[in-house]
């Protein structure tokens, strides 16, 4: 029997596996008709213990475009969690009904527990401020399609680098490609955690911290903007003080490279001015589209469907 594969952290997959997923996604984009019924009679359970729009919709759209079905909940208050059911019990139950599970949970490490409780593949669709590997796969597919590959680039990560799980996962993923440099742009209070710095150091990666976006922007090939997330703060005062730290507008983009790509995991609040949307370098909505394709590829891969 094949070992059940899960995706908890992006590093669960080898570089070869990630490249394989990107190849599948590229093929889905080129030949969508080949895949439209490939998951017929398969069910994806979406267990969303905290609210999400984009991730849940993209998982749902992905499974529907593969011809499969989706069941689940998107608000813990409408599930048995409200009655005090543990993550373990909810996952065991869902594993009885579905072929694959995508779960989001506000507590860090919840998918690790889930993966020990069921024999169906678990996809981590975000666990607190920890990991969000399918967003990272989305980012990698977008970079690959827009830049023609991964590696040999300088990537600027801007905003909330302390609680920003998309940032942590993307760094871990990009570290495995050659010659990637990181510009870490954040207010002092939201700097990248030490354990991520240790990971970069162990990998021998070059990284520099900035407090001003304008200091970093001319050298960037990729600018990854993030939102300061209100839900990660225990103290509202800190959130209000830090939420407007970086706002990307056309003036700030003036010295940037012409082939820069601007990414954002979305939703944005005000960290990218709407005027940037029409700039050819803005790729964040295309990135959301890539999210559906890479999740299609991931579902196929974890279900062992070729």
């Amino acid at each position: 029997m094949n070992k059940i594969r899960n995706l908890i952290n992006i590093t669960d997959f080898t570089v070869e596996e990630i490249n394989h997923l990107i190849e599948i996604a590229d093929d889905i984009i080129a030949n969508p008709e080949k895949y439209q019924d490939i998951c017929a009679h398969k069910k994806l359970a979406t267990l969303f213990f905290e609210p999400s729009t984009r991730t849940r919709l993209s998982f749902t759209a992905a499974m529907m475009e593969l011809g499969g079905n989706v069941l689940g909940f998107d608000d813990a208050s409408t599930s048995s969690t409200k009655k005090g059911e543990s993550v373990s019990d909810t996952v065991i139950m869902a594993g009885c009904y579905a072929d694959i599970i995508a779960m989001r949970h506000p507590k860090e490490g919840a998918p690790v527990i889930a993966s020990t409780k069921t024999t169906v593949p678990i996809i981590n669709a975000g666990d607190g401020g920890h990991f969000h590997p399918t967003q990272t796969l989305t980012d990698l597919l977008t970079i690959s399609r827009k830049k023609g590959g991964l590696g040999n680039c300088t990537i600027g990560l801007c905003g909330d680098l302390k609680f920003g799980r998309t940032v942590h996962s993307l760094i871990e993923a990009m570290l495995r490609y050659e010659n990637v440099k990181f510009a870490l742009i954040s207010p002092a209070e939201l700097r990248i955690p030490d354990y991520v710095k240790e990971t970069m150091d162990r990998a021998g990666a070059k990284w520099v911290e900035y407090e001003k976006l304008e200091d970093a922007i001319p050298e960037l090939d990729i600018l990854y903007m993030t939102r300061v997330q209100k839900e990660r703060f225990f103290n509202e005062e800190d959130y209000i003080r830090l939420k407007d730290s970086f706002i990307l507008n056309l003036d700030l983009l003036e010295p940037a490279k012409k082939d820069l790509i601007i990414l954002h995991p979305l939703p944005r609040v005000n960290e990218i001015s709407v005027e940037v949307d029409d700039d050819s370098r803005a790729c964040y909505f295309y990135q959301a589209l890539c999210g559906k394709y890479i999740r299609m590829a991931l579902i196929l891969y974890l279900l062992g469907i070729k």
């Binding site: 373990s88 949970h105 490490g109 919840a110 690790v112 666990d127 920890h130 354990y195």
Partner: peptide, 27 residues
């Protein structure tokens, strides 16, 4: 997750022997 999930073992892995640093395997 260990702060709310019942009866799960608190597990840690050693990440830096010199500094005696352990990290939670969940978070």
């Amino acid at each position: 997750i260990t702060s709310i999930e019942q009866e799960i073992p608190h597990k840690f892995k050693l990440v830096n022997k010199e500094k005696k640093v352990y990290r939670c395997i969940y978070c």
